[in-house]
Design a binder for these strands. Structure first.
Lengths: 109, 109
DNA sequence: CGGGATCCCTGCTGATACTG
DNA sequence: CAGTATCAGCAGGGATCCCG
């Protein structure tokens, strides 16, 4: 049927790898914020994503940074300022987001 | 930046709705099996997806059926035979899978 | 064969308090 | 301001048994 899809063992399945990055509850929301606004401070993300705890936000930011999807810039000031932005690599996620949105719009109930 | 993306409240966010269907550990694997093979029996899916428990498989199949992504056909035989297949609607997930695969292939580590 | 019922367990996540 | 530390809760998922 869909010959461009193949079974991949879990350890190096590209679909699973992608979902590990964007599939969890907050990850895609963080990425979308940065897709829309370009660059945001930690506190701005926290304010935009109502309800996220600092612990979870930190963890997700760290994961996304390690995966080179977002970049972190620290300004040596007092009080500290930290800005997050989408990397060029992270921008490659846009087609996925658009497809997810397209499909989601066709769902009812 | 990405003007085709907008913030949507969680309750009717299309991206979140899509991820709820395919983002969990086993859901996308079940769908991919049916994308590749077209129609499969319960036991065939269970055999292909090594490690899935009957409880989880049942739950995921039920969810996907309720969302009209897969369809279930019961043959009144002894022993019973039940076949699952992707619906026309479910086939609309293919672009998402391909984009997820494409992106996943560009990830290293 | 295709599940449902039950119990358990782990890991993600939340809440809160605290610090450089 | 931008996190870390700590504790606790809960839901998703696993293991097992059983039944039509």
């Amino acid at each position: 049927m869909f010959t461009r899809l193949t079974r991949s063992p879990s350890k190096n399945c590209p679909i699973e790898a992608s979902l590990n990055l964007i599939g969890s509850k907050w990850s895609f929301l963080i990425i979308r914020e940065l897709m829309i606004d370009g660059t945001l401070r930690y506190s701005e993300i926290q304010r935009n994503l109502e309800g996220i705890s600092p612990r979870t936000l930190s963890a997700k930011l760290k994961l996304l940074e390690q995966s080179n999807i977002i970049s972190k810039k620290v300004y040596p000031e007092v009080p500290p300022r930290v800005e997050y932005s989408l990397t060029k690599f992270g921008e490659k996620l846009e087609p996925i987001f658009l497809e997810l949105k397209n499909f989601g719009l066709t769902l009812q109930n």
